[in-house]
Amino acid sequence: MCGRFTLTVNLEKIQEQLDVEEINLEDYKASYNIAPSQNILAVINDGENNRMGKLRWGLIPFWANDKNIGYKMINARAETVAEKGSFKHALKKRRCIIPADSFYEWKKVDGKKQPYRIYLKEQDVFEFAGLWEKWRDENDQNIFSCTIITTQANDFMSEIHNRMPVILHKKHHQQWMDPANQDPEDVVQLLQPIDSNAMTALLTRQE
């Protein structure tokens, strides 16, 4: 799974790397402990341009009766995302990328959990594959929310945990976000574990 991550680089670097034309942000602060239910940085494509803003982490399906369902929807499994009622609508029409510069995972050792902070060796910023949704609450206010897609761990991550977030290759960013592409099979094939050789990790106390 993916339950904590960091984003500490400056906004200009993120904007440049993701070819963002429009930014809808009131504030941006570096964070070493981004957690579910927080509003997190995300990028979508409106059919013409990449737009960056914030989405609540924990997807609320458009048909949900209660926004608290989002607490259970922080991750979607790549293997079933095209079939699950909570995610298949967003997979067709509302895909996003979520920038990060590391994520945390906990390894069980002798009955205790040891925290690791996982990076990419040669990238200051990388991008999770995500989905987003719009949900209207009882006060007729829209809540825009998202989830991070996970997949089976690669060889490197399997030493720590059996799941990992999907980290998209840059060449696949536009294919993933393109709202005109509504073929689930075409986008699901992008949801592969990143190469183990690209990754490294540091045993740490969570910051």
Rank of each mutant, 00 (worst) to 15 (best):
S158A: 11
Q123S: 13
P179L: 15
P193E: 01
T147A: 05
C96F: 04
N10D: 15
L202G: 02
E159L: 13
E159K: 15
N142P: 01
E105I: 04
I44T: 14
L7Q: 10
K84Y: 04
Q182D: 10
K29P: 06
M157L: 09
H173I: 06
A78T: 07
Q174C: 03
E22K: 11
F87P: 04
C146K: 07
P36L: 07
S31L: 01
Y28V: 11
K93W: 09
I160Q: 06
T151Y: 09
I149M: 10
Q141I: 04
G47D: 08
F156K: 05
I194A: 08
W176D: 04
W63S: 06
A78R: 10
D183R: 09
P193K: 05
K112F: 06
S37C: 03
R77Y: 12
E133I: 02
G53P: 01
F87R: 07
F5R: 02
L168W: 06
A198H: 05
N49P: 03
K171E: 13
E16G: 00
M73E: 07
T80R: 05
K93Y: 14
I118N: 02
S158E: 11
K121P: 02
T150F: 08
G47L: 06
K134T: 15
A129Y: 04
H173V: 03
L191P: 01
D101R: 12
K72G: 01
K67N: 14
N49D: 12
H169P: 08
W106N: 09
R77V: 04
A30Q: 15
S145F: 03
W132L: 12
Q175L: 09
T150V: 14
I194T: 07
N197G: 13
M73K: 06
I160M: 02
K72V: 04
E83G: 05
A42Q: 07
L120R: 11
A100L: 02
